[in-house]
Design a protein around this nucleic acid. Structure first.
Lengths: 131, 131
DNA sequence: TTATATGCAAATGATTTGCGTAGTC
DNA sequence: GACTACGCAAATCATTTGCATATAA
């Protein structure tokens, strides 16, 4: 319940823009590298702060994937991911079922359920080639 | 492809034993605290090293949940988790579908799929009470 | 004008690693 | 006896935060 008035700074706008543009589920560091091409003086701290703000606003998604560093996703709609256990790359996965059907899978839980996320693991084509 | 011969040290055995005994999906620090009651001179580094070894051996599971610190699970069989977005507690969830059915949900992926994990998020009963 | 956001650097938190010694096999 | 694992401490990696200044509204 914050009373703060958010401002659309150049930094914030460009971080959002670049994150929406990519499909690679970048880490904060990768966003930093990309954004720095347009704003050479931006700091990594600003990137972290804005990724936090943007995900609170629901404009981007903070992925709850295993592993560090954390990854972000410009696509907000519910979808699943697959992570290469070898190189760590994360890609989207298309499901045969709807997200609602997945949500309905729970037999019982005392928790009030808010959401869900399926993470598949596997070997990506590139790593498969290299054995 | 390691040629090392593993040894069953007192520390390793007790870490495994304590992890098998609990259902709380503890962090390395929590395992450390528990094990220390029996081995007061054990170091946190040893706990980390052994959790790594034990999960490579498939004797325990390193959870690929979002958030830090990382959590471990003494139950190796496939099952799903629910994490309280408020207090971070992680509990097991029983599914209405089999794990095979979940695996079959993927419509298409260029990855060679190895496994999957569903993480539900919600509010645990305790946090729900406190609003 | 004024409060939010930035850049910078230091602080924090989690995990890993180097090293000399202890203990398993 | 040989070599793995330990305890300890320092190093590394990711992320957060304090502060003085810049800037959006």
């Amino acid at each position: 319940v914050s009373r703060k008035t958010l401002r659309l700074t150049r930094q914030r706008a460009i971080i959002l823009e670049e994150l929406k543009r990519t499909r690679t589920h970048p880490t904060a560091d990768e966003v930093y590298a990309t954004v720095r091409r347009r704003l050479p003086r931006i700091s990594l701290g600003t990137v972290y702060r804005n990724l936090e703000v943007l995900s609170r606003l629901g404009l981007v998604r903070r992925l709850t994937l295993g592993g560090s560093p954390r990854r972000y996703d410009g696509t907000v709609e519910d979808h699943c991911h697959i992570r290469c256990v070898d190189c760590g790359r994360v890609e989207d996965v298309e499901l045969a079922a709807s997200q609602d059907e997945v949500g309905a899978l729970v037999a019982y839980s005392p928790f009030e359920i808010i959401g869900h996320h399926i993470e598949f693991t596997g070997i990506c084509p590139e790593c498969a080639k290299q054995g």
